[in-house]
Design a protein around this nucleic acid. Structure first.
Lengths: 225, 225
DNA sequence: AGAAATTTGTTCGTATGTATA
DNA sequence: TTATACATACGAACAAATTTC
């Protein structure tokens, strides 16, 4: 870490306190004045460091009370992805392509790692998806179903990536899910794709699951040749 | 974006300037005093906002000169991944698993997207890997070869993820590459794995490429059943 | 080459709004 | 309700690095 800037002193200090187990989620940090005193730096520099920690998702400041350990990185990652999207002018095909990749790999992992409650949740989501009448509901249950699958995969990096990406998609390309849902010529095809995914997961049938995923995203021809 | 805090004013202001195309990479921001004046806030608050922008990777401050648009998110992502790694106590198998997933998907994409120069670079890397005598060199060329493949895949999200992850691995689990290299019982196996990957890519033979990748990471039994 | 001006880095002091006991 | 503790915010000043003349 860059130690040339003074404000990074408090960043690495707090990080280290967390790593050492002396600060846990919910813990209250020393007051800004105390930090300034103990680290021998001004309160302004302390505050600049705290803004970095806040931005990373490590702390949450509460005026009048104090700074608290929070530990939620998804939002920051999502913000960065959003900005990348704008700046690089990334086209939507790349977005779908990436989402497809993540979900395919998650599917492979979840196949053998799903717990009873995950399967139960999947069945519920699928039923709700099929039962839902309007597009808005379909989109909602579609999202929940995919999220359930990925969050059961057991790989924290993959999960964090997906959650950040999902949050990014929902805030900046809201219409994407809608277009995917509409892209399935009839709602029957959409239901069928999800049914395959869920059935495959329950029966540990990878090919069936992947076929469902393929049906779901398959209208992108560029990917997978 | 949270607008309750004053310092976020400058964050959204600069972001918007970039999105509007009025600030490009390399552009110099108005001075802190100018920003303070034009946004009607103190220099201290401006600076807190600039620390956020710096942390995201949007600007790079230069003492005595100014703040400049930079746009490199890899480092921030890498830092967050690092911290996730520490905090969640993620085991190394998950790390390798995630890397494997990324590389496998990148391989599939690169197979049809590699340019002449990429193939040339691959051949060079492979030769250098085979020719290298000591372990340190092997590790270096191993890294370059994998990086070449991923960066040819054409998906910016995947590439950003890989670069962040690579940077994270190299700074926190330096020994991982070493162990992979040593994990191949003889250096012949390591060379063979890479040869398959490169040959497969050149001949558009996906199975051969994937087999090479599998040989490379295959000592993890948990993944891929 | 060197001095002056500019700009970020850092500090101190002060005032205000919010939370908590 | 009051008092205390705390984060939020401002302004002025000096140090250090860079740019300009």
């Amino acid at each position: 870490m860059d130690t040339s800037k003074l404000h990074n002193k408090v960043v690495s200090y707090i990080k280290n306190e967390i790593v050492q187990g002396r600060l846990l989620p919910g813990s209250k940090l020393p007051t800004e004045r105390e930090l300034a005193s103990s680290l021998s730096m001004s309160r302004n520099s302390i505050r600049e460091g705290l803004r970095v920690l806040e931005n990373i998702g490590i702390i949450t400041p509460v005026q009048g009370s104090g700074n608290y350990i929070s530990l939620n990185f998804d939002e920051t990652m999502s913000e960065m992805l959003s900005f990348m999207y704008f700046l690089k002018g990334i086209d939507e095909e790349q977005v779908i392509e990436f989402r497809w990749m993540i979900e395919e790999e998650a599917l492979k992992l979840s196949l053998h790692r799903m717990k009873e409650e995950d399967i139960k949740a999947l069945k519920t989501n699928l039923s709700a998806l099929i039962a839902s009448k309007n597009e808005e509901e379909k989109i909602q249950y579609d999202q929940m179903l995919h999220s359930t699958i990925v969050n059961a995969c057991g790989n924290d990096f993959l999960i964090a990536n997906y959650n950040a990406f999902t949050s990014f998609m929902d805030s900046h390309i809201k219409s994407m899910r809608q277009r995917i849902v509409r892209g399935m010529e009839s709602s029957h095809l959409l239901e069928e794709a999800h049914r395959k995914m869920v059935e495959g997961l329950i029966q540990s049938d990878l090919d069936l699951s992947l076929q469902g995923l393929h049906d779901h995203f398959g209208y992108i021809e560029q990917y997978k040749k």
